[in-house]
Design a protein around this nucleic acid. Structure first.
Length: 537
DNA sequence: AATAGTCGGATTTTTAGG
DNA sequence: CCTAAAAATCCGACTATT
């Protein structure tokens, strides 16, 4: 029953599966000479230390480059932006980068259109819907008209009439608890959730009532798997102030499915995605696989990236099977192979040859910098495990983007179940200054990864690493709060071990051994709320 | 009524490194 | 030849969706 919001009557024609770019893309991209969207976004991190380019020698310069490269811009673009704006004003550079990346012609029309529309100020989700409806080849003006029309049609009162004005009405004042009534309304833009997407037009304007205490500082953001056993999300909602989960599939943000539920008290107006928009199909994300991709494998999206990948013998078995037939295996063989392919999330890397994704491909799809989890004694198996448990950075950043303007002087973050630091990376890529980050993570390899990232990105703030969430006392919280002046954001996804459908052994629900740590999340949110409310009075 | 897909766990076998 | 680590191989249920 908690999935009642899936039942949006006519979700059919807006269903994501009928993005019909399949055929278009294949033809087009084949026709285009070697220009790889993926390579341009990845090359950057590789040799960032090699300061051989003659002109740039100062330490400040290279630090700046590193900083912005860490946010996901290509090294080339960063250098250009710094050259144009000087190295002293980081905000100007940031603006220039956003402009440059938005103007840069992308290889695929859809991405380009999306980027342009977003840059014009249209909400990301509406832009996607428009492209979905009008087709990827539609002219920008046509798409813009579509969006305006649909906004009118829905009688949207939102401040989007003048798309160029990104920052007009703020939906509420964050510093002050607005109404003394204690009632609080948050207007989500209409297409929130439904069908595990955020772009279903069947949904209506939703007003959520917040208890007064969560309408105030601090913001919190909770994440877990969407397809939990019955009742789990209802329980989670009950603890987290009766806020309805927002179900989002990360396939709208990258080339892989990732169905997750999010409960938060963030405003939802004027969200904006990270730029550049990542490749949204397998074919765009992995151009080299097109050469080997058989026509009968019609996938455009990968399935969820799990913590384990297919062992070698599986792919070898398929290869031998396929080699028995010619170019076109019989239908029943195709179907059997497809079942295995989908189950193990394989891609084509040679003639009849399949392979699981590499760890660095996981990183790319999930929005992390290349080699984020590499090195420092981290094994391959551990990388898969940590990455499989991680946030999809673009998705989370999209939600957190509303915070950017609210904390121009930096933000204090309490990050629970940090894992490999998806929340930290998301905030950083949004260009937010991280003042104080308390990061709670049980696994040593993950803490090392976060620490390493923190140092590589030249963070000027303060990172405190804590091991066990159960040992975080309210006393300790008080001390941090006093020292930092309070937390602005509490963020984390509690363990899904006993909730995930993949677990055949101990899917015991929210009360399971690991998943019950959700209550620790709740405990800490409560404690921080309590302490900071007292301090404010 | 049938199908598809899922932030996994326990155990055994193989490999890597002395 | 030994040990530790990594890879391979077992293992269904639950539910939204069609």
């Amino acid at each position: 029953m908690q999935f009642h919001n899936y039942v949006g009557s006519e979700g059919d024609d807006s269903s994501p599966s009928d993005y019909d770019w399949n055929t278009d893309d294949e033809l087009e991209v084949f026709g285009i000479p070697p220009s790889d969207p993926t390579i341009s976004s990845q090359e950057s991190c590789e040799d960032s230390v090699g300061e051989s380019s003659a002109s740039c020698s100062s330490a400040k310069h290279s630090k700046l480059i590193h900083l912005f490269v860490g946010m996901g811009f290509s090294r080339e673009t960063v250098i250009k932006a710094i050259d144009e704006n000087g190295r002293d004003n980081e905000e100007d550079i940031m603006e220039a980068l956003l402009t440059l990346t938005a103007e840069k012609p992308l290889t695929v029309e859809k991405d380009e259109a999306l980027s342009v529309l977003v840059n014009m100020g249209y909400p990301f989700e509406e832009a996607l819907t428009a492209i979905d409806k009008c087709g990827p080849k539609a002219h920008i003006s046509e798409l813009a008209d579509f969006i305006s029309a649909s906004q009118l049609e829905k009688g949207l009162h939102s401040p989007q009439e003048s798309p160029n004005n990104k920052h007009d009405a703020s939906d509420y004042t964050h510093e002050k608890p607005c109404q003394p009534s204690g009632e609080y309304y948050l207007h989500t833009s209409k297409k929130v959730k439904l069908g595990l997407g955020i772009f279903n037009e069947a949904s209506q304007v939703i007003s959520r009532k917040f208890p007064r205490e969560v309408a105030n500082k601090p913001y919190f953001y909770f994440e877990n798997v969407a397809l939990a056993p019955k009742g789990v999300w209802k329980t989670i909602s009950r603890f987290l102030y009766e806020i309805e989960p927002e179900y989002v599939d990360s396939k709208y943000f990258c080339a892989a499915t990732r169905k997750r539920g999010y409960i938060h008290n963030l405003p939802t107006h004027n969200r904006s995605p990270l730029l550049p928009i990542p490749p949204l199909t397998i074919q765009e994300a992995f151009p080299t696989t097109k050469k080997w991709w058989p026509s009968w494998d019609r996938r455009t999206k990968l399935n969820c990236l799990l913590t384990r990948v297919a062992p070698g013998p599986v792919t070898e078995r398929i290869r031998k099977l396929l080699e028995k037939f010619g170019d076109e295996p019989p239908l029943h063989v195709q179907e059997n192979v497809l079942v295995e392919i989908r189950k193990w999330n394989l891609v084509w890397v040679g003639k009849n040859k399949l392979a699981p994704l590499e760890p660095d491909e996981y990183e790319m799809l999930l929005g992390f910098p290349r080699d984020h989890t590499r090195g420092g004694g981290v094994t391959r198996t551990e990388r898969y495990k940590s990455l499989g448990n991680a946030f999809q950075v673009n998705t989370v950043a999209y939600h957190l983007s509303v915070l950017k303007g609210r904390f121009p002087n930096g933000i204090n973050v309490l990050s629970l179940f940090s894992g490999i630091g998806g929340a930290e990376v998301a905030l950083h890529r949004l260009g937010m200054m991280l003042k104080n980050v308390v990061s709670v993570e049980i696994a040593e390899v993950n803490r090392n990864i976060i620490r390493s990232w923190w140092e590589q990105t030249n963070q000027r703030g303060n990172l405190i690493e804590v091991e066990d969430v159960q040992k975080v006392s309210s006393n300790e919280l008080s001390q941090w709060i006093t020292k930092f002046g309070g937390f602005d954001l509490i963020i984390g996804g509690s363990p899904c071990n006993n909730i995930s459908g993949s677990n055949r052994v101990s899917r015991h629900g929210l009360e399971g051994e690991q998943s019950s740590l959700f209550y620790e999340y709740f405990r800490i949110v409560e404690a921080v709320m309590e302490i900071q409310r007292d301090e404010l009075l």
